[in-house]
Design a protein around this nucleic acid. Structure first.
Lengths: 296, 296
DNA sequence: TATATTTCATGCATTCAGTGCATTGATATT
DNA sequence: AATATCAATGCACTGAATGCATGAAATATA
């Protein structure tokens, strides 16, 4: 068995297609077919089920896929560990979409000043995907909203931030001195779609106050939610970090009390993987940036 | 980077010699030199310090050695996991020398009957080496005496067995109805050498009773210790499982009370590694054999 | 001090595993 | 029925890894 074979296998597994995987790997399709066939021969069983239109992983293939990922991640780790000069190198950062655009830029600014030669790759995905990638060593640092079920991963609490009520301008609630969740019981909500943990969090919050929020619309980005609120489609709850970058006056923000809704941002890393010097510094930048948010 | 290179690197690291490593790997020395040189080039730094008479690992090399072992162990794991038919396969078992000859044969007999086609490789080493090998995935199952400091490993208590006092025949203590450790305060001891945890355990036991045992001789095998006792060089404490196979009358065994000295045998496995069906069955055999010892 | 020995690196020739190209075969899709 | 898609296979080739012969450096030995 050789690492090239594992790389070949993974490419095919991802594309579910030899031809396209071959393009990505910059080899020909027959070469790839043979490479995988040889691997299958060594393992004594097929890794792919060849259907006419596409190939699918067999059960054994699925098992082997995660092993292959682990092995290649470990190889990357080992290489990174030895070539770690504290300056150059790549850092893979992941964050959920309701954190990334508001929090990462500040972190990246801090980090870039310290390590101008380092390369940072940021990706936005759902919580479970991010955790899975972190587990597999494909992401070095992940930023999420608590709570997270992350066995084998290290979770560090960064700060807790308020969730603000967004209203269309002129909404009756705008003038009300104290607003509680109960005041929103009959109000139409605009939320993010179900893939975002934020929407689930808001629904859970409402259910704690014994009502099911009336969700009239869902969007896939916070910016869209804010636009829909401005247009009077409903109200919503928005993290303070998102409010901070909203400089229009097309909607108004109010604190909700008793209880004050909030979310907690955490930093997740994989303790089984090598922590490069860059990574350690990046986490320090994250904490520094977090301190500013916590201070508000 | 390729697995072949890692295998080459490890062979050289073990032999501290390219020529001999090349023989083991069945390649020529120049081929091996190049293979390693290429790896070093990829990692951007030398892994070996070439001295005239031998080669030594650099600091980076030492670091990379353990990573390479991990990677190859994971590869073996993955292969084993996929080719696990529950019948054939290899199982690597380790035990300390004061357990292996007395406990393993019974286990192997049970196991052989269940899995005649499986191959078991047993090795005797010191506790720390065994644990290290288990951690590195080079041993599947390890048998030790508690206590063990084994982070990341799974430790299961099997049974506790008495340690018996061995005396030369005719020793005054032979007729004494109740013997305590305090009775041994002035007696010369024959112990195993310091590499065996058993000798340390006995010394600790004595120190708990506030005396330092007078060690007149040390041997590297329990059988030798027993012979020396028979020759009247001193007394010793021997695990019951060792007494059980001593069918001569050249020495006598007595229980010690208040407290009764004992050692606890544990089964250690690595939870991060694949547990083959063979391995699960082997552990079952270990427990079955242990039950017999516990019943005494 | 000279010589022999040990051991790793390097120049050069060779080989074979992996690859590319062309093609086949199988199965959807139109 | 014709066409398109996609993986497997026959065949030729290439180049990376290897083997052989030798060099270079350092120590051991006479």
């Amino acid at each position: 068995m050789e690492l090239t074979q594992l790389r070949h296998f993974l490419a095919v597994a991802e594309h579910e297609n030899f031809t396209r995987a071959a393009v990505e790997l910059a080899v020909t399709q027959p070469a790839l077919s043979r490479s995988v066939a040889k691997l299958e021969a060594e393992l004594g069983q097929p890794l792919f089920e060849r259907q006419t239109r596409r190939v699918r992983l067999t059960d054994a293939g699925r098992l082997f896929e995660s092993r292959a990922r682990e092995i290649l991640a470990l190889v990357d780790d080992a290489k990174a560990e030895l070539t770690d000069d504290g300056q150059t190198g790549r850092l893979r950062v992941g964050a959920i979409p309701t954190i990334a655009p508001y929090f990462l830029p500040g972190v990246l600014r801090l980090f870039r000043d310290l390590h101008p030669r380092a390369q940072v790759v940021a990706s936005e995905e759902t919580t479970d995907r991010l955790l899975e990638h972190c587990r597999q060593g494909e992401l070095d640092v992940v930023l999420l909203a608590a709570p997270v079920a992350a066995p084998h991963l290290h979770v560090e609490t960064l700060f807790t931030e308020e969730m603000l009520l967004v209203l269309p301008p002129g909404d009756p609630l705008e003038k009300q001195p104290r607003i509680t969740l109960a005041d929103l019981r009959q109000r139409p909500f605009v939320l993010l779609d179900e893939t975002h943990c934020l929407s689930g969090m808001i629904e859970a919050l409402c259910r704690q106050r014994a009502f099911q929020p009336i969700v009239v619309e869902r969007a896939s980005q916070l910016a869209t939610v804010e636009e829909l609120v401005a247009l009077g489609h409903g109200v919503s709850l928005i993290p303070r970090m998102a409010r901070a970058v909203d400089d229009t006056r097309r909607r108004v923000y109010r604190s909700v009390t008793n209880p004050k809704p909030s979310r907690t941002i955490v930093l997740v890393t994989n303790p089984d993987r090598y922590h490069s010097r860059l990574m350690t510094r990046f986490c320090a930048c994250v904490r520094e940036a977090a301190a500013q948010f916590a201070g508000r």
